[in-house]
Simulated scan of single mutants.
Amino acid sequence: MTDTLFATEPATDLCFGVLGPLALWSAGARETLTAPKLRGLLTLMLLDSVPVPAEQVRFVLDEGERWRDNTGPMHVAVHRLRRWLMQHGGHRLELEPAGYRLTVVGGEVDARRFRHLVTTANDRPDPAERAERLMAALALWRGPVGADAPAAVRQQHAARQLERLRRQATVDLAVTCLDAGLSGQALPLIERAAAEAPYDEQTQSLFALSLAACGLQAEALDVIERTRQTLATELGIDPGHHLRDAQLRILRP
């Protein structure tokens, strides 16, 4: 299947990554933006393609609410970022009635590519094609969204929405691969998701089932037991139906 979405190297000039720490690269070389406030502001702008209200921009930049009624520092930060973006590919940061919008010119944003891959995966009736797109989407992640951004950025609705979409894509990938007999291909991604979500019963259960589908029953049962102990000792709760059902499926001849 020929699809530019699966190109191993970005075909565009300046590309942006927020699925993990902020990453900037151009023609295979890393670009740098060192000012912490500008990095946080750029991450905020890249989380979604919709305009970001000015008060939201100010909230993210004004840690400790030191500016009070002075909007000058916000305008200075926006101006500095706008100038940097223009110098690195002519990307536009413009103020619209609804807020600030970043238009990436001839580049790529991993968050937008991730959303596109997940959305189009749901349209694929063939499980192998659906799994391929989901694997490509999840492979874009390098860590928590906006990992090096201030907490105010990571708590934004768009950031939380991306994390929820990632969890759902992981679940969909695991289920699709289990049904299609492709668990071996997706196992590394599911294992990574399980390592990042030790208290998520559904993710741990699907990781165990994927291990069992690859012939690793002992390792699968170890995941079930380890998760059970983690929930009991650290959260004081009993396992739910996800773990119980997974254990029964693994033990069933």
Rank of each mutant, 00 (worst) to 15 (best):
R226P: 03
D123N: 01
T2Q: 08
A121K: 00
A220Q: 15
L102V: 12
L140K: 06
Y100C: 11
A159N: 06
H157R: 10
T120A: 12
A180G: 09
A11F: 00
D200K: 04
F207I: 01
A220N: 14
F114E: 05
H91R: 07
L134D: 01
T227E: 05
V60E: 08
H242Q: 12
L5D: 14
P125L: 04
D110C: 01
D48R: 14
W25V: 10
L189V: 15
A137H: 05
V104T: 09
Q217R: 14
A131L: 00
L209V: 05
G240Q: 12
R82D: 04
L19P: 06
D245V: 03
L19R: 08
R39F: 07
A7Y: 08
C15D: 01
E108Y: 01
L187W: 13
T119W: 07
A213V: 02
G215Y: 15
R226V: 04
L24S: 04
A23L: 11
L211V: 12
G240E: 13
A111K: 03
D222G: 08
V109T: 05
R133E: 02
V78G: 09
R249P: 07
H242L: 07
A208N: 13
Q56H: 11
D245I: 00
W25I: 08
A174I: 08
R113W: 02
D245R: 05
L81V: 06
R124P: 00
L231K: 02
V52M: 12
P53D: 15
L42V: 11
R167P: 03
I190L: 14
N122C: 01
V118Q: 08
D123E: 07
P125W: 03
L231D: 00
P253D: 15
R92P: 00
A147D: 02
R58T: 06
A139T: 08
L162K: 06
S205P: 00
D222R: 14
E191L: 06
R124Y: 01
N70G: 00
G107L: 12
A186L: 10
P150Y: 01
Q161C: 07
I224Y: 01
V50N: 02
R113F: 02
G20A: 02
E163V: 02
A186T: 09
L173P: 13
P144M: 00
D172H: 15
R160Q: 08
Q217P: 10
L95K: 09
Q229R: 09
H88M: 06
S26A: 14
D172N: 14
E163M: 02
H88D: 03
N122D: 05
D110L: 00
I224C: 05
V118D: 09
G89P: 10
H116V: 12
D13Q: 13
E132K: 12
H157Q: 08
T119E: 13
A208Q: 09
G64W: 00
A195K: 14
L19H: 10
P10F: 06
L38T: 06
A212S: 13
